[in-house]
Amino acid sequence: MAKKESHDRSEIPAWKSDFPISEEQATHVNRREFAKFLGLLSGALALGNGVIVIRALAFPSKPLEGEHFVCNADEVAVGEMFQFEIRGNEIIPYILIHLEEGEWRAFEQKCTHLTCAVRYREDLGKIECPCHHGFFSADTGEVLQGPPPRSLPRLEVVIKEGKVYVREEKQDKTV
């Protein structure tokens, strides 16, 4: 009886049966397929690297043009931090820090690790990323501790007639 049933099943053409692909055939990945997949992955990674190059060549990052008004100097006390945004092609958040009398710093607020918002800790005198406890120097924006790979992008602060402006900082690009 069982033999007859199996005989009947084999007579049904694959396109007519409910499950034309056997489970083993569907789930089994042999080594040839795995090696071919690795080859494909290798090609995709090379392509990804190419996209980075094309993107960097075609869309170079534009420096900030002109001076941007932030706030009045008397609005930010010594040791305080002020958040502001600059709208261009995209909105970039920045922080203005009043370190000492006459000492101002402006940094991008996005942590270079995973773009969490950083904040100035007056008690430590450092900029902290609360997500993974990365610390940056409040003076230069350099990484002091934690996972961030790069220092915070910095803007130059200019005080004119009691008003705070920021502009692109002229810096040497060292590798």
């Binding site: 290798s42 090379a46 690297n49 190419g50 980075i52 960097a56 060549l57 790069r150 690009k173 590798v175």
Partner: peptide, 19 residues
Amino acid sequence: LQDNIYFALTTFIGSFLLA
């Protein structure tokens, strides 16, 4: 992200050769 295009170019050539 640091505008270091030469590193990106070099790694692309390396990656392409490996592919």
